[in-house]
Design a binder for these strands. Structure first.
Lengths: 124, 124
DNA sequence: AATTATGTTATATTATGGATATAACATAAG
DNA sequence: CTTATGTTATATCCATAATATAACATAATT
């Protein structure tokens, strides 16, 4: 299992789960159609409460990354809607780019950073 | 004053202040060397408590956007350290780009989004 | 010199959200 | 029939956000 909780982080446990699962999907460590462990199993293996895992799964479902059904568990099923997804990413980038502008980070440097990160994800 | 609190937002008041001030700096609405209102004045004009403004200012100081001194108030003074600032932005971009990968947003589309946002900031 | 405004610190209270602990339920799998 | 599953329901504990007062030292103003 590629999921691990940092108990010293100030990030909420359920957010850590979310992010690691999303990175897992992005890097093909877990693929469309495959299942995540049950809420109880994952809770046990990473050492946190069942309800915390359940919350992460619920949010991931709402954001269109997984589909929950009783037979197959938490199945990776990415919901796509280009217009909506682009708008969402735009919102997420706004503050970071404003900070970058303040700090004199150029457009080219941002592009380079984006390429770096995408390359890292593609190689893993 | 370009700062306004959305009392219905789920974002913390002090985070709203932070972000709006950062955007204010990025868009040159407030320039290096100029001062923000005192914690008490800003608190009164936007309708929140003094300590909430103080927290926002304290965080902005720690992140290197303003400098607090007793004579001139909260002065815009952006601290730059390219290596550190680039690393910080990289961390901030990681999750958003992972989400984008899951949703099949291409490198070119991300670059276009970045350009869009930067253009918006530059025109204001 | 006295007053005012400032950032700063301290304490206390309330509300909200994160995390945990049990428990129970309907349903699907074994 | 038993087990495991997602789901729902309470309840408690703790940290954080926000507010309310209060006080203090220092700088600016009068």
């Amino acid at each position: 299992m590629f999921i691990e909780i940092d108990f010293n982080s100030d990030e909420a446990f359920y957010v850590q789960l979310q992010n690691q699962i999303i990175i897992g999907i992005a890097t093909d460590m877990i693929k469309e159609g495959e299942s995540l462990p049950s809420v109880r199993k994952l809770a046990e293996t990473v050492g946190i409460n069942m309800h915390t895992v359940n919350k992460a799964y619920t949010v991931l479902k709402q954001e269109g990354f997984i589909h929950l059904d009783r037979r197959r568990g938490a199945v990776i099923a990415v919901d796509m809607d280009k217009a909506r997804d682009l708008l969402e990413m735009k919102e997420q980038l706004r503050i970071s780019l404003a900070k970058g502008l303040c700090k004199n980070i150029s457009r080219e440097e941002v592009h380079a950073l984006v390429d770096e990160i995408l390359d890292e994800y593609r190689k893993e």
